[in-house]
């Protein structure tokens, strides 16, 4: 039985009168990859931000290797320890890098912060190599890089900290299909090489099929279905999961039918809530 790497239990978060996250619990094992899917407003991104520490929860706790992760990381030592637990790759590679810092400098900065006693140079080369970036890309500023290259820099930056959990928030959504496949393969390779656990936030069920082995479907802040990815995708139990699956364009696709199904779902939910 692998040790649970990340344990999230009973997360709640409200914004005004909206329940963005409503009693969300899940476990991520060492070396595993868990996907959270859902539409916009499902609370998947808020959940991820709470795990990372960019947002605080109203209730519930996040544990990494059994230890509670504090909501606020105060003080240098705690901040660094917190960073080594969980790292994140953001959606938009065009905005998630400082426009004035080259790939190499980003990595050097991070390595100096976390491993001041080590010589950063060989590690920088190793990291760039791991994400498939050449020497020229390493010296370039973000605006001189393509979307895929920038996302590689962002992944290298997260790996530099040597985190236990990597949260990927729509990390391939802004990339072109051919580049997206490269990055997904890269993520699969990294998982083979390291015991890192992935928490993959996405709206794309195809991507989920590719990189996750467990799946969580969220809607209106709640987990509506959870299970092994292949099972959930092959035999969805919840009507919302079915709706999501049917919404993916495929041959013989009938978008009109999906629009109706969504309305039916909304109606049944409303009657379910009032009864």
């Amino acid at each position: 039985m692998p040790e649970p790497l990340l344990q999230v239990s009973g997360l709640h978060r409200t914004f005004g009168d909206v329940h963005a996250v409503d009693d969300v619990s899940f476990t991520l094992n060492e070396g595993a990859s868990l996907g959270i899917v859902g539409g916009s407003g499902s609370g998947k991104t808020t959940t991820a931000r709470i795990v990372v520490g960019l947002e605080s929860a109203d209730a519930g706790e996040v544990r990494v290797r059994g230890r509670v992760r504090p909501a606020r990381l105060r003080g240098r030592a705690r901040r660094l320890a917190g960073a080594r637990q969980v790292q994140m790759v953001f959606q938009d590679p065009y905005l998630s890098l400082d426009p004035r810092t080259s790939a190499e400098d980003v990595l050097r900065e991070t390595l100096r912060l976390h491993f001041p006693e080590r010589d950063p140079v060989p590690r920088i080369r190793e990291l760039l190599d791991q994400v498939g970036l050449g020497a020229r890309a390493a010296e370039a500023l973000p605006r001189q890089l393509s979307g895929g290259q920038r996302q590689r820099v962002a992944i290298a930056r997260a790996l530099a900290v040597e985190p236990e959990v990597l949260v990927l928030d729509e990390a391939v959504a802004a990339l072109d299909v051919s580049v997206q496949a490269q990055i997904l393969n890269l993520l699969a390779d990294i998982r083979e090489q390291t015991p890192i656990g992935y928490l993959f936030i996405t709206h794309d069920l195809g991507v989920v099929r590719c990189v996750t082995d467990e799946l969580l479907v969220m809607r209106h802040g709640r987990v509506v279905e959870a299970g092994p990815t292949s099972d959930v995708l092959a035999a969805p139990q919840h009507p919302y999961t079915r709706l999501l699956l049917d919404s993916v364009p495929h041959p013989g696709w009938d978008p009109g039918r999906i629009a109706e199904a969504r309305q039916e779902l909304a109606v049944s939910e409303r009657s379910g809530a009032t009864s």
């Binding site: 520490g53 960019l54 790292q87 953001f90 998630s96 426009p99």
Partner: peptide, 14 residues
């Protein structure tokens, strides 16, 4: 509001 600032926060920079 830009994610690069969040990224540095996540990295543990003060």
């Amino acid at each position: 509001a830009r994610p690069y600032v969040s990224a540095y926060q996540v990295q543990g920079h003060s």
